[in-house]
Design a protein around this nucleic acid. Structure first.
Length: 481
DNA sequence: AACATCACCAACCGCCTCAAG
DNA sequence: ACTTGAGGCGGTTGGTGATGT
């Protein structure tokens, strides 16, 4: 029984604490008077128990006598809790009042309440009506123990137009202030969190409704490549769109779209389970569609990301052509040889697809190791750091000059380009926009150089050069179509 | 017409961060 | 240094309408 009493007393203190805290929020003021430190002095000494209050034989005066530091006189109707915003305020002249009106024993009339309000109040006033003290305690004890979502009696689920109106009107008039206090003040039977979500995701006046435009779609994809699931950050780049909306749009549309393009929606890298040529062609088409629809009104980073994605699609096409050829029992390098008699590819296919002239292609073909060498395997399964395909990676690293470094690396391998395939493979996609551009410029090689037998270029350099070739996206699109 | 499945999205839930005490 | 609570965030759910069988 002793434990139970202690528990009840503890609840009691919590109840008072919560009452004070709620009133603090409602009145929007901080308590600065050390003489009346609610948390330390009042609550700890406020040992009014349920037993005290339910004991009919015990008068309010007795309870007060037992608890000399009660924040308000139990014997007076109504009970009030004074709030002091500055040290100059006093019990007699508080800045605000929380009036607790208990109608069971010490009820007071409305004019009586008003009299109290006018006589004691300097600032603001809140009247809370309770049938009895236990009811008041229950409310605040519940508040103290349960999270917002479990507060009993609060409405959940879809918002009605009436509720929307109330919320909008209140916020337009007063601002949202404390979200937790807002429902009480506005007269909404919702938790503050629910109000905040409703406002930020739906009712805010600057929210843009309707379908996402193509530009917005591309921007989201690009930003997601850099930021990941940081929906609020992404939303920051799309005026009028909420994080929730973008998140939903991603999960229902863009994720699928990326997957159809053969890209992992998490990493934005090629999916390893997506190597059939047909689907790659579709992906490439999708990628080129994206690029062709992409305007240059968005920030340069997004544009660079898109450029990388296109490079990536090209690379995938190449990889798959190569893999198909190598995987086939009948395959040999003749298949790749556009000049050989056994070439099974349509005339001019490779030269068109790869955007290389005949001399480049011949040189490329001649430069490849024999089919028994593991070059293609390595090519296709190059580790991520070698593929360097993650667009996000590039930007997150501030546009590191990986491909520049790689260029040096390749230079060092001139004498033994195929000795260790994994190590010797160059990055095939631009590692950073800046570097890509630089290399592109720097490698704007005279086509004749490729057919020049004395050229020091390796096959890998040529592959690299090919990847940086300035073949227009429209060209790729037309080609695939 | 009835039912099943899918797609969408508003809203909820629980965790995290940060500021205030 | 520690506690507390509000606000923010991202993952997930569940209701609803559309579409397919």
């Amino acid at each position: 029984m002793g434990d139970q009493k202690q528990y009840i007393m503890g609840e009691h203190i919590e109840g008072f604490k919560k009452a004070f805290q709620q009133a603090k929020q409602l009145f929007g003021m901080s308590l600065t008077d050390d003489r009346f430190n609610i948390d330390k002095d009042v609550c700890q000494d406020c040992l009014v128990t349920l037993e005290d209050l339910s004991d009919d034989e015990k008068s309010c005066q007795d309870v007060e006598a037992d608890n000399p530091r009660l924040p308000f006189p139990l014997s007076l109707p109504p009970r009030f809790i004074p709030f002091f915003a500055t040290p100059r305020a006093s019990r007699a002249q508080p800045h605000a009042l929380l009036i607790l009106n208990f109608t069971d024993r010490l009820s007071c009339k409305e004019d009586e309440l008003l009299q109290w309000k006018h006589s004691r109040l300097v600032g603001d006033c809140l009247v809370k009506n309770y049938a009895n003290f236990q009811e008041y305690l229950c409310e605040y004890v519940m508040m103290g123990r349960a999270p917002c979502s479990d507060e009993s009696g609060l409405k959940k689920g879809p918002w009605t137009p009436e509720e929307d109106n109330i919320l909008v009107e209140y916020i337009q008039r007063h601002g949202h202030g404390s979200w937790r206090a807002l429902p009480n003040l506005a007269g909404l039977n919702r938790c503050g969190k629910s109000c905040r979500l409703r406002w930020t995701n739906y009712l805010r006046p600057d929210i843009k409704r309707g379908k996402f435009s193509e530009e917005e779609e591309q921007l989201i994809i690009s930003l997601h490549a850099v930021l990941g699931n940081k929906w609020s950050s992404i939303a920051g780049h799309l005026p009028g769109r909420t994080d929730n909306e973008i998140k939903n749009f991603w999960n229902t549309h863009l994720k699928k779209k990326l997957m159809q393009m053969g890209l992992d929606p998490v990493t934005h890298r090629p999916r390893s389970d997506h190597l059939d040529l047909l689907s790659i062609l579709q992906q490439l088409l999708a990628a080129t569609n994206i690029v062709s629809n992409f305007t240059n009104t968005w920030d340069i980073n997004a544009l660079r990301l898109q450029s990388d994605a296109t490079q990536l699609a090209k690379l995938q096409l190449l990889q798959n052509i190569l893999q198909v050829l190598v995987a086939s029992p009948a395959s040999n390098m003749d298949l790749l040889n556009p000049f050989g008699p056994s070439s099974s590819l349509p005339d001019g296919f490779l030269t068109e697809v790869l955007g290389l002239d005949q001399s480049k292609l011949q040189n490329l073909y001649n430069g490849f190791p024999s089919q028994n060498q593991p070059i293609f395997q390595s090519f296709v399964e190059a580790p991520p750091q070698q593929q360097a395909l993650s667009t996000g990676y590039h930007l997150m690293n501030g546009g590191s000059n990986r491909s520049c470094m790689n260029s040096e690396k390749v230079d060092k391998q001139l004498d033994a380009p195929y000795s260790t395939p994994l190590d010797s493979l160059p990055d095939l996609a631009s590692a950073s926009p800046e570097c890509s551009t630089g290399k592109q410029m720097e490698n704007k090689v005279n086509p004749n150089e490729f057919s020049d037998p004395s050229s020091t270029s390796t096959t890998f350099e040529m592959w690299g050069d090919f990847m940086y070739e300035d073949v227009s996206d429209a060209y790729w699109k037309d080609l695939i179509e």
